[in-house]
């Protein structure tokens, strides 16, 4: 990877984390969900760099295009946006969390660093070639051969989720 590409990836990573901070701590839920859109886009860029081009497309379509719009719809339908009572973070919980969360992140990072070091020792030699190859065809083949049963199960799950969603949100 050239330095320019690395800078783009680092910018996407920093954008993702900053947007996630806004999602978690912004007092206005509308701005939090807009920040979630940017976090999803940052993760999509990271997917591209990790060699998952198809997943990046799915991420943009399903998350950034679908879930964010759905959440925005729900917010616009239910909240009186300019009503003053939009602060919704439990301050009683945030104070102990502010102590625990950095420790938890640090512990998680240490554990993942050990795991990462272990994985890097056994990384296959062809991983750069793997990550630059297109993934649409292998994913399609895998979904219809090795992963056929989960694929069919997920279709039933999606169908029942759609029907259930319509049934739950039905007018009285």
């Amino acid at each position: 990877m050239t330095v320019g590409l690395k800078i783009v990836l680092a910018a996407a990573q920093i954008l993702t984390v900053l947007s996630a901070v806004a999602v978690t701590f912004h007092p206005n839920i509308l701005y939090a969900s807009i920040a979630l859109f940017f976090a999803f886009c940052g993760v999509a860029v990271m997917f591209v760099y990790a060699g998952a081009d198809f997943l990046a497309g799915a991420q943009l379509i399903v998350y950034a295009g679908g879930v964010t719009i759905l959440v925005l719809f729900a917010i616009m339908l239910t909240q009186w946006l300019y009503k003053s009572k939009l602060r919704d973070i439990r301050m009683r919980v945030v104070a102990p969390l502010a102590l625990i969360a950095p420790a938890l992140t640090y512990g998680l990072c240490v554990a993942l660093r050990g795991l990462g070091d272990h994985v890097l020792k056994t990384t296959p030699a062809n991983f750069e070639a793997f990550s630059s190859a297109p993934k649409t065809m292998p994913i399609g083949q895998a979904l219809l051969t090795n992963y056929l049963l989960p694929f069919e199960a997920i279709t039933i799950l999606l169908l029942s989720a759609l029907v259930g969603g319509v049934w739950l949100a039905r007018p009285k």
Partner: peptide, 24 residues
Amino acid sequence: QIVALFIIFIAAAEAAVALAIILR
């Protein structure tokens, strides 16, 4: 990547049902 793809699918289903429950 296939597992991550399934995670995306399940998250979409979960979001749809959760938002329906929230509206209700």
